[in-house]
Design a protein around this nucleic acid. Structure first.
Lengths: 120, 120
DNA sequence: ATATCGTACAACCAAATGGTTGTAGATCAG
DNA sequence: CTGATCTACAACCATTTGGTTGTACGATAT
């Protein structure tokens, strides 16, 4: 049985979508660009060798992952970076870091039987 | 300049592997568990409903992404968390955060441009 | 020596991914 | 209005992914 998972807070599907969206170089490049400034979908498409439709799909993946937002302006769709998604990804990695440090702390505690170990 | 940063990496296969490895709830659970303590592959497999071979594949994906290491001990393979992979993922997200803050900075204040180069 | 355990790996399958082309609907310029 | 642009979306295709079962092999226990 699937056993209680060790700390997964946002829905697993959301997190899957988030990291999946980041697992592609083109999509990471898009995130970086639209985080630095605004682009229309066709403006983005012009940057890559692939078809417009392919870029459109990448943007859709990023939007579903909350890494970018789209806003209609005239006949264009303006794509912007969405801080929310980034923060979420970072929080998740921070949780793993915390687990790591807890383990490192346990090991240190075992090696040094005395607890001289408090936070400033 | 920022533009240089945006143009780097035609395709970073390592980063793809890293985020892809994190884009699965079972794999994230494995990472959390082996970061907290040691597990053999079969010890991990016992935690999930899927087959041993499926878990073995997940561990292999994590190993290729530098998120875990395996070490043979007797007839078992001990899986442990690998800090290196985590750190790399965090650094990549930090870069995006930096771009975000640079943009926020540009909006608030104009042209205090500062050249920053980063490691891959 | 033999059986069992833990692992590795191949072969196979369904579903998802990442790309293409093509069609159609809005919106803007002349 | 006509034509060009920007977008959305469907249909299709090749490859990858995530799972399965089955086989093989070294290490361990009886």
């Amino acid at each position: 049985m699937v056993v209680d998972q060790l700390r997964t807070r946002p829905s697993d599907a959301d997190t899957d979508r988030l990291f999946h969206a980041l697992a592609d170089a083109t999509r990471r490049d898009i995130v970086a660009r639209v985080t630095a400034g605004e682009y229309s979908v066709s403006g983005l498409a012009a940057l890559y060798t692939m078809s417009f439709a392919a870029v459109q799909k990448h943007v859709a993946v990023l939007e579903r992952a909350s890494l970018v937002t789209k806003e209609k302006r005239g006949r264009e769709q303006i794509v912007r970076g969405n801080h929310e998604g980034l923060q979420k990804a970072r929080r998740l990695l921070d949780q793993l870091e915390m687990i790591w440090r807890q383990r490192a702390g346990r090991i240190a505690d075992i090696l040094a039987e005395d607890d001289e170990r408090d936070l400033p």
